[in-house]
Amino acid sequence: MNIRRLKDNISSRLMLAATVFACLLFFSMLIGLYIRARPILSLVPISDLLFSSVWGPSDGKFGFLPFIMGTLWVTGLATIIAVPISLLSSIYLSEYAGNSLRNAVKPLIDLLAGIPSVVYGLWGVLAVVPFIKNTLAPALGVETIGGYGVLAGGIVLSIMVFPIIISVTGEVLRSVTQDMREVSLSLGATKRQTIKHVVLRKARPGIFAAIVLGFSRAFGETMAVLMVVGNVPKVPASVFDPAYPLPALIANTFGEMMSIPLYDSAILLAALMLLIVVLIFNILARMVLIKIEKGVI
C-alpha cells in the first residue's frame, strides 16, 4: 500500500519537475540573453538602439532600426501574400472539393511543410530572384539589387507559411459540425452565405490562431530569408529594396568580428529583441483569442 503511494508521489513530483524545467528554460534564456546584452544597454541609450538607423559597429554605432524594419517588411509582406491564398484554398478544400481531391492534396501540403528551409532558400535564389530581376522589375521600371530584396523574401516566406495556415484552417473548418451547415441551408441560405456567415464565423478563433501560427513562423524564419533578402542594413523604402531582418543578422555575424567591442553584446541584444517580440505576439494573440471566446461566437 505504502509503496504504491510512494510511487504515486514520486511520479507526480517527477512530472512537476519536468514541467518546471520546461518553463524555467524560457526564463533562463531570457535572463541569459539579458545579462549578455547588458554591456551595450548600459553604454548606448535604448532609444538610440531601437530608433537609430546608423549601423556602424566599428564606430560604436548600433542602430537596430534597419533590422527591425527589415523583419517587419518581410514578415508583413509574407502574411499579406499567404493569408488570402491559403484561406481561400483551405475553404475550397474543406467546403467544395470532393473527398478524392482533398485526400490527394492534403499529403502534398503536409509535404510542403516538411521541406527544409534551406531548400526553399535555394529555390528562392534560383527561381524567385531571377524572376524579379529579369521580368518583374524591368516590367515595372524599378531598380533592384540583382532581384534580391523584400519581395523575394516575402514570396519565399509566404510559401513556407502556406502549409501551416492551410492545414490548421482546414482542421478548424472541418470541426464545424455538419448540423450547423444544415441549419443555415434549411433557412434558404446559399452555400456561399452559409460559409460566410456561419462556417467562417464559427471557425474565426481557429483561423485567427492559424494566421498567428503562420506569422510566428515567418517572424523567426532565418535561413531561406537570409538567402534572398539582400542583407543590406538599410531601412527599406519599397518592396524592391533589400532588407536585413534580425534573424539574418544574428545568423550571419555571430561568431565573426567578435574583436569589435560590444559587437557580441549587440547581437545578443538582437536575439533578445526577437524573443521579446515573439513573446508579445503570443500574448497579443492569446488576448484576442480570449476576447473572441468570451464574445459572441
Partner: peptide, 15 residues
C-alpha cells in the same frame, strides 16, 4: 428550403 423550417434533433444555435 425557404418554404420549410427545420427543427433538428438537438438544438443547434448558430454561432
Amino acid at each position: 428550403r425557404k418554404k420549410m423550417g427545420l427543427l433538428a434533433q438537438k438544438p443547434i444555435p448558430l454561432p
